[in-house]
Design a protein around this nucleic acid. Structure first.
Lengths: 287, 287
DNA sequence: TTGCTCCTCACGTCACGTGAGGTGGC
DNA sequence: TTGCTCCTCACGTCACGTGAGGTGGC
């Protein structure tokens, strides 16, 4: 940026609307910055030195207003920007910027997480929309990162909520992020059949979790109803496995594809149960 | 998430402060969501059915309030969230989320750019602080991406600002981002010596620019003063080159390390000039 | 006189935060 | 009675946006 001195610059200042268009921000914002003393036009009144009060901006002010906008966008309060503008030193500004660099980094992490949460919810809802609810089917499922809670203890009344809250409070590494949906983990199909509303542990669908829901063959079923209302699904799944030659060989996961987040009527919440299975070893037919 | 029905859940609701602590948000926010009808406690009044009006939250509401918070953080207005909450369907929510996924992506790009702008400013200011201003030195500089403007035409009065504004308006691919500092590019040292306030072109320090300031040996000098005030720097640089065996062999760049962004007094603005040089070809001394 | 661009000033808005004054059960 | 947690209601705040009514030069 190289130029003669201000006095020799002549009169080619820009009106507030011209300047606003050039820097791509509304004129109201520029007026606001002016009245707040954050960023003022280079001059007031027009060339003829007349009595009008029009704001006149110098083209060289573009960089400054752009930088003020950046500061404001990253969350520096206008008052801080104003104070800084009234006694600027590179050292002060460097200090401010380096503290706010950390804030920007945090914001990026937050945004990424928000995106990830949204993806998780969308994936569940999409699965719910595509599901053939009444059928039971066997399907190969990919591995999924999760965070597994401690073993639950269902003695005493109110034990579900007590254990659920214990799960929520449990601090993991990385810290349990409750933005992700929570599901129930059952050690085995037997446990699920016995008490489908008392999962061995809780898990969070946090994709940054250290544990994994293993990749492999799962028997998948769905049922509608409020939390804990498994209906006849456990029995139907057990029957299907028997009839079609599958053995349960691992944990059972349940998760809500539709819940209070996505649907009004609690009776319409949609639970998905996936139980790890393998094909039954049949003796080869004797010829 | 699996449980018996609400009626059987017993009384283990959480007070507003307990719930606030569990989900990591202030109780005032929860009250605000309640009064706005965005997110209401599961129950009012305590177990004894007494007359008090305490808000009681069910642990299963954690997911919902977390998801509301995510929506709010990505910029969905509370009114929209409220409307959605009153007639939820997975389809509606999917639609909302997919539109806002795009907004999140935009925000990420903005944040990255803001970070990049801040890095650019910080790098310049840091150079300014470290600079030995009165000395002229030769140094190998790394390549730097920039956006080069068209050739300037300095006929007529006010031509500097006119050309500067033309540069600002010029649409490049990627579009010229004026958040980055702008400098002057001179075709050669001769041009700079003749008219140090009339750069052949302008350039923006946009690191995503298509053009490059080439890597190589540069003669570097600094001077204080308002835009365009080159003082005796051009001559001093020319003299230094002659005395120390360097030939100017390329363009000259000037850029302000301190300017109105970082310092109050216009007389203290700090300009850095870097001129491409090579060592003079000397005949080998005859033994 | 009309149209145009600019002006000021007061008030609205959005998502909360703050603070005063009060309640209910140990 | 004291302390504690919760309550309501009104007002403040931050960074603008909006809209009414007015001005100055072609």
């Amino acid at each position: 940026l190289s130029n003669m001195n201000d006095k020799k610059l002549g009169m080619d200042y820009l009106s507030i609307n011209e300047f606003a268009e050039l820097v791509g921000m509304p004129a109201t914002k520029l007026r606001h910055y002016d009245t707040e003393g954050v960023f003022m036009p280079a001059k007031r009144g027009d060339e003829q030195n007349s009595t009008n009060k029009h704001r006149l901006y110098a083209p060289t002010q573009i960089t400054t207003v752009k930088y003020i906008r950046v500061l404001s966008e990253i969350g520096v309060p206008l008052k801080t920007i104003k104070d800084l503008a009234h006694s600027r030193t590179p050292e002060k500004l460097l200090k401010l910027l380096s503290t706010h660099k950390a804030i920007i980094a945090d914001k990026m992490v937050s945004l990424q997480q928000e995106d990830s949460v949204i993806n998780t919810f969308m994936a569940l809802m999409f699965e719910g929309i595509c599901a053939t609810e009444t059928d039971i089917k066997v399907s190969k499922m990919p591995a999924k990162s999760i965070i597994l809670g401690d073993t639950n203890d269902f003695t005493g009344s109110d034990s579900f909520h007590r254990e659920f809250i214990r799960f929520c409070h449990s601090s993991h590494e990385p810290r349990l992020n409750l933005c992700y949906p929570v599901g129930g983990y059952f050690e085995s199909m037997d446990v699920f059949l016995k008490e489908p509303s008392q999962p061995t542990r809780f898990f969070s669908l946090d994709p940054s979790g250290q544990e994994q829901k293993a990749e492999g063959l799962y028997l998948i079923g769905h049922t509608r109803g409020y939390y804990g209302q498994a209906n006849d699904l456990p029995e139907r799944m057990a029957e299907y496995a028997k009839e079609n030659g599958f053995d349960f060989n691992g944990p059972v996961y349940n998760i809500f594809l539709f819940d209070e987040v996505s649907i009004d009527d609690p009776e319409q919440y949609l639970m998905q149960v996936s139980a790890s299975v393998k094909e039954t070893q049949r003796p080869l037919p004797v010829l």
